[in-house]
Design a protein around this nucleic acid. Structure first.
Lengths: 255, 255
DNA sequence: GATGAACACATGTATGTACAAGTTTGGCGA
DNA sequence: TCGCCAAACTTGTACATACATGTGTTCATC
């Protein structure tokens, strides 16, 4: 999936360390080999070694500091960009069989709020998808997806019961390079309640997502609602590293 | 707050770019100066420039690639580690007056599940705090904090109605270096409902947090519940960058 | 005017060096 | 034995250089 050409040195080092940590060769609290040792081990220079360390640090796997040896922190969960963006991909990684029951797929003119959210003129055509997603055949999440026609046409031509829309877009050459998520909580409405088989008002974990191309064009604006006892988000922050996460006060109806 | 000694070059460059973007000098879609230009502008070398770019990239502010000029993405919100960990700090940044009404502070032996969550033996003393937090005098969040005695003793000696416990721990020399958060949704129980002045069962955004020292010792295990129309989380992920965030299936009662 | 090759320029990766600024270690002296 | 200091080692920061690899432009050619 989304293959890379020849693996870079720093990528190789990072992969080695990540694997060694995940498989318990380095336990939480253990010291990692020093940069000098890794340099020798991989017949490399300090640059790639430090680059690998840097990625592990922002993943929250290790902690380092001047004079101190680098130590392994908790065996924290982390996922790649592809895992994060795709429900199907995430299920596969967790050894869960993903499923979907498409409720409807439409092409229609965008009403005002949706147009604003997609940053297109009022009335421009959008493609919308409404699906129930399942984990091992158990209802877990309701998914509302909206695409500008430019990208939505790929969705219209796709059997939305057959798998990952995300993967289909990638295969069609759409360059998904960044996503922004807003997470909050909301009570199940009637549609949600029926599909998820819970009472109206049941607290759901809502994830509103917007996906962008590298050039900044908006690909998707979506609203996913999870049963909180089936899925949750975990994130790590480390002092000194940028967080890419923000607590925001919700005053304006953004997204 | 938590001052730095002399600002490093890469930090200066990052700060300049961040400010210029936030203040609109570089608009979303604009190209940033090339690395060569920045090198000249700051009389520096490529290393620090690239280091600054790297932090902005993981913050989701910019996007770059081989051959392409670096472009500004959305004007995305990001916050530092200190902002993320402290409700008071976050409010200050958003020009909101933070408040708190302490319900109780106790020292007691940990019952089984709490002891496990704090990774201490059953019955070891813990310090617990239960507070209502306010934004501009409006109830916004209920906060349940638990500390092993080693760190909790600082909390016992602190007036929890006077401000930020986090800041107090820092001032007492506690090295808070990493936090792990799990986010989901939960209905308000009777305590939550009374304090937040909403009906029982109202969907709340729950953030369970654990804080660690650089050496890996557990400082705090907490449970914050936000009114979702007052606060939410935002996060950005970029292809190729590690995410430090994970969607997790909630089977075992972790945290 | 359309096509394509050559070129300049952008960022990505890698190496080597030097020094700064912490932590740990070990030995020396009281 | 205890305490202190210097040396060794660790990671952080910075600079100079080289080449890889992709993008965009220019310009000669068809």
């Amino acid at each position: 999936m989304t293959q890379q050409r020849t693996r870079q040195q720093y990528d190789e080092i990072a992969h080695y360390l990540r694997t060694a940590i995940r498989e318990g060769y380095f336990q939480p609290g253990d010291e990692l080999p020093s940069e000098a040792e890794l340099t020798r081990k991989f017949t490399s220079s300090r640059g790639p070694v430090r680059q690998a360390m840097s990625t592990l640090r922002t993943e929250g796997l290790i902690s380092s500091g001047r004079g101190r040896r680098t130590v392994v922190l908790d065996n924290v969960p982390t996922q790649s960009f592809d895992d994060i963006i795709s429900f199907s991909q995430w299920c596969h990684n967790a050894d869960i069989v993903p499923g979907q029951r498409t409720q409807w797929v439409t092409r229609r003119p965008a009403e005002k709020s949706l147009a604003a959210s997609l940053r297109i003129p009022d009335g421009d055509p959008v493609v919308s998808v409404f699906r129930l997603r399942l984990m091992d055949d158990v209802p877990t999440m309701v998914e509302r997806l909206n695409y500008p026609l430019e990208f939505g046409r790929h969705v219209l031509a796709f059997d939305t019961d057959s798998g990952s829309i995300y993967q289909e877009l990638i295969d069609q050459g759409v360059d998904i390079s960044r996503t922004s998520r807003t997470i909050d909580a909301i009570g199940a409405n009637e549609d949600d309640a029926t599909l998820l088989e819970v009472p109206v008002g049941t607290p759901l974990l809502r994830v509103r997502r917007r996906a962008f191309t590298g050039a900044g064009a908006l690909i998707e604006s979506s609203d996913d609602r999870y049963l909180p006892w089936k899925a949750s988000f975990t994130m790590n922050s480390t002092r000194g590293n940028p967080s890419s996460m923000a607590l925001t006060s919700t005053n304006l109806g953004d997204i």
